[in-house]
Design a protein around this nucleic acid. Structure first.
Lengths: 112, 112
DNA sequence: ATATATACCTAAGTTTGTTATGCATCAATA
DNA sequence: TATTGATGCATAACAAACTTAGGTATATAT
């Protein structure tokens, strides 16, 4: 991520969430999806993205599959069963964080 | 902060916000205020809190004043003029982050 | 006495991200 | 056809921001 647009710790949760929604995705695709969803405001930093994906894979939350497309390689990631439950709890945690920020910042945001 | 209740990078913004609202506060008081505002859900970790306050002071955003209360010392912090503008922009940044999280998580939250 | 709350502090280590690279394919265009 | 920008992956050095795990001391309640 760039320019502190995302806070530390939130990246892997966002990746898991998008993979959960979309079945399977590759790294570059994830960067594009994030840009799209945030109207070009959040641009994932590759130096953070790829190590994060590798860690999620190493932790057994994702599986990776390299697929040739033309002469190029794409590395598709998908959530494992273990990753499913972990995804749920991480999303809940991030939502809690958002709730806490609302309380602490005197939120202009409300439940909708 | 404890148990990833807050995300990395948000702590100093929260401290600035509380100091902005309350004029001047000391470290322990800040931990209590955060607990109070989050109905005991967020407990600041002292190992993060004190270094964060020291850094804000070193960066010229806060001033510190040690005041004896009985036989004990309290270190009161207050925002400097430089800290005022910085506080505004950091709060805005954190609000942006919250907005982005809503977009990425498929928010249950809306503008109110 | 002993535990809990108040009140401050730091050092070692970890996690996570930034910055700066490197390599390669493909499409568009000057 | 040479170059630019997009696609697509990766790592290494560094820095920021924490966690963990202590340390010191006073005050209050049991």
């Amino acid at each position: 991520m760039n320019n502190s647009q995302l806070y530390k710790g939130s990246l892997s949760t966002v990746l898991l969430k998008l993979l959960k929604e979309n079945g399977r995705m590759y790294g570059y695709e994830l960067t594009q999806k994030v840009k799209e969803l945030t109207t070009n405001e959040v641009v994932l930093n590759e130096g953070a993205l790829y190590p994060a994906l590798h860690k999620l894979e190493a932790d057994g939350l994702l599986t990776a599959e390299v697929v040739p497309v033309g002469n190029r390689m794409r590395k598709y990631y998908a959530i494992t069963p273990k990753g499913q439950t972990e995804t749920e709890s991480r999303i809940a945690e991030l939502e809690e964080f958002v709730k806490h920020m609302q309380l602490l910042l005197g939120a202009k945001l409300s439940l909708g």
